[in-house]
Nucleic acid binder design. Structure first.
Lengths: 207, 207
DNA sequence: AGCCGGTTTGCGGAAATCCACAATTGGCGC
DNA sequence: GCGCCAATTGTGGATTTCCGCAAACCGGCT
């Protein structure tokens, strides 16, 4: 559980050892896996850090593992490693959201730099992810009715209008309103809209 | 000025003609330029569409032109074309925000698809850009004082508190407030915060 | 039946917002 | 100096928000 670590997936034991040794020498923790299935079945999807994936492996390829993880809503930054990379493959991987794409043989310093960049990137991502999660949790404990009222509040409507529109008394709207603020841990409609603004805005959308 | 068009920059006349013919046959307007300098000096930076850049050219390379444009705050999607592309170059270009990277010889259909994707992408970008521009214009006509007050409003503070903090009467704050809403073309603090939320959220951040 | 939580409503008052009307001050340009 | 504009303030009233206190209804669970 500790800090951010690098997950290495490569079928070649020599490569795994070399990478682990290299990273360890630079103070980067890492775990290594022999195959994509191995990683998928054992690793937590909640972790923070980055992935170093070999493209060509027996069984599931690195690319396929990447796709699987994205489908599983795992946003860990992925650095591909390949000895037979071609341009179209690299381009596709990057456009699909891979963090980097490195050809073997790799330069030690360059690789470490990219890993460090990925780790730093993921720290920010995790921070964002966590605040988004918090907001979602707050949002989840809102009643159906409260969510309706919230929508109307965010639409900038006055309590009076909301009451009319929902066919209820203004007082009721006021009660909902205060419950919403309480559960969402904000103290004004402005804060509410700002907090909610975090949800729709992923700084990294596919280009 | 018409609709979105593709700007082609390639030193080889045969390639330019082939591309223009290909695009025209698919209903895509295009303009061609012989060199990066040529394009830079003649083309408007306000247009909408996409760029098709040859990487290797006498004088300024496509990559360099790309960097120049980014420095000039031009966000047009760029598709690189190259006959001697290597993986690191493609990766760097994509990480720097290029839209795509195609090797020559290219497949006609694939290239057109990518161009169309870029054009569609740019339509959305332009739409976003325009609304952002509008907001900026509104923001620009706010007085110094009004901007200060706006910040405090967005911080969720009450008029009374704002008045204290700025050392002015509450009435003055109210006046500023109404001026702000008027100039920003919104009718409540909630709308204001939503409109302002558009500014900080570029869907495309560098990875 | 009894309890609980969501939804609803009313009353009444404190606080805040919104606004029209009115006015003063100070800087800037013609 | 005069006009213009930003910034400032005041008065007073209409409207809205915010809240505590109280209570009713209903569906689900024990």
């Amino acid at each position: 559980m500790s800090g951010p670590a690098t997950q290495i997936v490569d079928d070649d034991p020599a490569v795994r050892d070399a990478l682990q040794w290299l990273l360890k020498s630079r103070g980067v923790q890492s775990q290594a896996w022999e195959s994509a299935d191995d990683f998928l079945s054992s690793a937590s999807r909640e972790l923070c850090g980055c992935l170093l994936l070999d493209v060509r492996m027996p069984g599931m390829s690195g690319i396929e593992l990447f796709d699987r993880l994205r489908a599983l809503n795992c946003r860990l930054p992925v650095i591909f490693l390949t000895g037979h990379g071609d341009v179209p493959m690299a381009v596709q991987a990057l456009k699909d959201g891979a963090f980097d794409f490195i050809e073997k043989p790799y330069d030690d310093n360059a690789l470490v730099d990219k890993v460090l960049a990925a780790l730093e990137h993921d720290l920010k991502r995790c921070a964002r992810e966590n605040s988004v999660l918090l907001v979602r949790q707050n949002l989840a404990q809102l009643t159906q009715r409260e969510q309706e009222v919230m929508q109307l509040i965010l639409a900038g409507k006055l309590n009076k209008v909301i009451a009319d529109q929902l066919g209820i008394a203004m007082r009721t709207v006021e009660v909902h309103r205060s419950h919403i603020f309480e559960k969402m841990q904000v103290r004004s409609a402005v804060e509410l809209s700002q907090v909610l603004g975090l949800l729709g805005n992923k700084p990294e959308a596919e280009n």
